[in-house]
Design a protein around this nucleic acid. Structure first.
Length: 275
DNA sequence: AGCTCAACCTGCTGGC
DNA sequence: TGCCAGCAGGTTGAGC
């Protein structure tokens, strides 16, 4: 997926098209994504307006008049708004027909080849947030600071990269941006979390924030499956330093970038610049 | 308690 | 050219 910048880009792209519009109809083109799709609520949301669209962690939250929706893009999901007569693409699993104040209709489509995404309907905000209530702070919040991260790391022997990708520690950092932030901070992804000085963790936090911010500004990283809400590709991939660059020269020292699986995920780093 | 790994699914790429 | 193994941005839960 879409890591945090891609989800944020999607939210920003959807807002101008969807806010204030009314849901006319919902169509499912299959029965299940990661979890079964429950059709019972469809009649309940027809006629409701979309009043708010926001992001928490990697989840897109929509507030309707009397209901809430949580969308997760999984590993390959994307959402786009298009003309109502545009032909369905393969893997367009969900459609929301929407109508604006001028009675013009468009369609919101959820596309997800690998079907790791989900759509959840609830009628209370508490229930909406339940699946993500154990999550850690947002990476841009004041809560995500060196004191916080240092104290958490004290009882963790696992690799710092695994800690960084743990959504209960901080949300939104996936494999790409974990690799990139660790490279910029000069910290080896394999280093035990408890063996990193607080000052270095402060540097790491800065780079996590910078890397995510730059990616949001660039409209998200486009790999194979990501498309932003208006189906324009993002451009951040041009500025990746190490991710996916095994064997290519390190931008700092020109030695070849290494790759190694850490906690089941391929990890890219420079063994000379990161320790 | 902390950590690792498999599983969920399809599509693309690279090697033979 | 064509086939097939391997790999891909996330998350969860089982098992060590």
């Amino acid at each position: 997926m879409p890591e945090l910048p891609e989800v944020e880009t999607t939210v920003r792209g959807l807002q101008p098209h969807l806010l204030g519009t009314k849901i006319i109809d919902v169509r499912f083109h299959r029965d299940n994504l990661r979890t079964p799709l429950d059709k019972d609520w469809i009649p309940k949301i027809n006629g409701q307006s979309i009043n708010q669209i926001k992001r928490r962690a990697k989840v897109i939250l929509m507030h309707l008049d009397n209901a809430y929706l949580a969308w997760h893009l999984g590993m390959s999901g994307s959402m786009r708004v298009c003309a109502i007569n545009e032909p369905l693409r393969k893997h367009d699993h969900i459609e929301f027909i929407i109508e604006n104040a001028g009675k013009q209709r468009k369609v919101l489509r959820f596309h997800d080849p690998r079907r790791f995404g989900y759509l959840k309907y609830t009628e209370s905000e508490a229930e909406l947030l339940k699946p993500i209530e154990h999550y850690g702070p947002e990476p841009f919040s004041d809560e995500f600071n060196a004191d916080y991260l240092y104290s958490l790391c004290q009882n963790k022997t696992q690799a710092i990269k695994s800690t960084l990708m743990d959504q209960t520690v901080v949300v939104g950092v996936g494999n790409i941006y974990a690799c990139e932030a660790l490279f910029l901070a000069g910290i080896s992804p394999k280093r035990s979390s408890k063996r990193i000085a607080k000052k270095r963790l402060a540097t790491l936090i800065n780079h996590v924030q910078n890397v995510l911010n730059d990616a949001i500004k660039a409209g998200g990283t486009t790999l194979q499956d990501f498309e932003s809400a208006e189906a324009k590709p993002g451009y951040f991939q041009q500025s990746l330093n190490v991710y996916g660059k095994a064997g290519k020269p390190c931008p700092h020292c020109f030695n070849p970038i290494q790759s190694q699986v850490i906690s089941g995920r391929n990890t890219f780093y420079c063994k000379y610049c990161q320790y």
